[in-house]
Design a protein around this nucleic acid. Sequence first.
DNA 1: CCCTAAATCCGAAACGTTTCGGAAAAGACA
DNA 2: TGTCTTTTCCGAAACGTTTCGGATTTAGGG
Lengths: 340, 340
Amino acid sequence: MVTLKDISRDLGLSVTQVSRALGDHTDVNPQTKQRVRAAADRLGYRPNAVARGLKTGRSGIVAMVVSGTRSPEVSAHLLEIVMGLSAEFSRIGLRFVLHVAQPDEDTAQLHEDLFLAGGIDGFIVISPLRHDPRIKALRRLGAAFVVHGRDPDQRHVHVDIDNHGVGYRLADHLLARGHRRIAFLTAGDHTFFSQERVRGLRQAYADRGLDCAAAQVIGMPMIAPEGYRATRDLLSQTQPPTAIIAGNTMLARGVYAAAAECNVAIPGELSVITHDDGLDLFGTDTFDPPLGGTISPLSDAWVSVARTLQNMIAAQNDGLMECILPLGFREGGSVQSVLD
Amino acid sequence: MVTLKDISRDLGLSVTQVSRALGDHTDVNPQTKQRVRAAADRLGYRPNAVARGLKTGRSGIVAMVVSGTRSPEVSAHLLEIVMGLSAEFSRIGLRFVLHVAQPDEDTAQLHEDLFLAGGIDGFIVISPLRHDPRIKALRRLGAAFVVHGRDPDQRHVHVDIDNHGVGYRLADHLLARGHRRIAFLTAGDHTFFSQERVRGLRQAYADRGLDCAAAQVIGMPMIAPEGYRATRDLLSQTQPPTAIIAGNTMLARGVYAAAAECNVAIPGELSVITHDDGLDLFGTDTFDPPLGGTISPLSDAWVSVARTLQNMIAAQNDGLMECILPLGFREGGSVQSVLD
DNA sequence: CCCTAAATCCGAAACGTTTCGGAAAAGACA
DNA sequence: TGTCTTTTCCGAAACGTTTCGGATTTAGGG
């Protein structure tokens, strides 16, 4: 391994000056810098991240811990998220690594172990639950971390979207077109984002003076097979809903499949609408008819997540920060009015 | 952060003795060990992995770099692999992390950067190509790594199965039951394992004095949609094959789907057989009729991979090691004889 | 009571880097 | 010539750990 000392010996300089030259500090002669850089190149010097980490207390590595899963969709979704985060972090000079835990492993403990061992500057937490134990652990440890989403039961830095707005706008879009019996396929009640969306939906009914009892809120894992199953059930009711809100595009995929199988035309006999997180996988443009709804690309979220975490690491910024990303809307062709 | 120095001060001992006590060395009084351990517990001491890494040159972290992908099946497959490796490494006290590269990123360069920065003891390489650039880079750097699979163009430590045997046994099993027109759905020719399997298949024909021209070898990405498409094509031939060998269970899934859609009965009108890597996802018991073929659980491979890498890291073992895992066979109910 | 060996301890150096405080040299100005 | 800046450099300490070599104490054997 080539070290600073090797370069300094080669050049007859002190280790100090070599370090400062490579770090482009001010108090080193410009042509000395050149010589040092040349020598470093020639000898194949690579700074030792471990030594640097010991001295500076920073490794340049951020991590995310996720639980393994059996669902191919969840895996694919997860990996696309990881790719997005990875790209964003490498853009700002940080390295992003993933630790995949066993499904039954205690991830809060894992975060703690990882943090206390040192060598990890910060963490990303996604899909927080209410009273999320990972967040609790990271807070207790004083670790730098940012959450994508929000746990209302604990204060923490987060990047999120306006989920109340998502529920409101999706419902309102349907209500404005005469729909009343609306089914809302969403996550279980253990997640805040789902609670918020439901609240938004109810608000939309209320703002129009309507009774939200006409809406059916159904919680489930947000993957295609569940959307399929729920839709089959819904369509076999005596009074099936005229519109379905799918919490994400995977659920929507299931809704489309079930509708096709039941010979229910979209949007003729059933309107469908979703929130689209902009992942390639299950993109709304792969739907026929094209799927409408709110849009907020995750790729935008990752930019904020990465930058925010970088700030926290650099500045020990303890001031609570929150970043709510804007919401778009795409008309699509999956909704039809039921007004006369 | 609680350090050895804190403990030593608390106990009136030297840092040396504290370190040795916690390391359970011989020349420290048993009851001193107790005191030290108690103090460490009480103060909440956690060894600093970075400092230890600087001193020992080992971090206890092994990594795998993979390219991101668009295919949900590949993602799911990958994540299950990662879970398996993760479990195995954590069992032997090493930490396994994943770095997901962009699809267009140079992974060989990434391995190099990661290694030269220090802090990573070894690497896992899966799905090697011929003349694999990652292997070339790791060899050049003298890094510890083990490959699952094999690149015959370079010497390296690897854990693999007998792929010639896989091809041979699968083909032989069908040939013994009278099949001659056999389609073999496998990976492209850029992978050694596929070449070997094909060689095995040809050998099986030859050993029976048969002309292997009756076999169709078709290369493709080994995922369900491709298996589906290929099977549709095959079944629409004027003389369709009487048996299909699917390179893995994902391909087999596609084969089953296509056969069902074409109203071709398995095994009545079409025999199917596969190599099963024992992943939960697409397990052979989820097939109807149950899918037969060779078996070699990847979970077994991970045990070897982890242990081998551990040895390499510990002992700088440069002696070329190779580990060929045994092959099982499961009869299943997906093959029928075409003999009179 | 002395000598040796075992048991138990400790100081100091090392890993490779960053950085603080100062030192030397050179030029500017009086 | 002497003083003051500016430029350019360097020694040494520090991060937290492991480990080598030696030091001190205690026990055992004669």
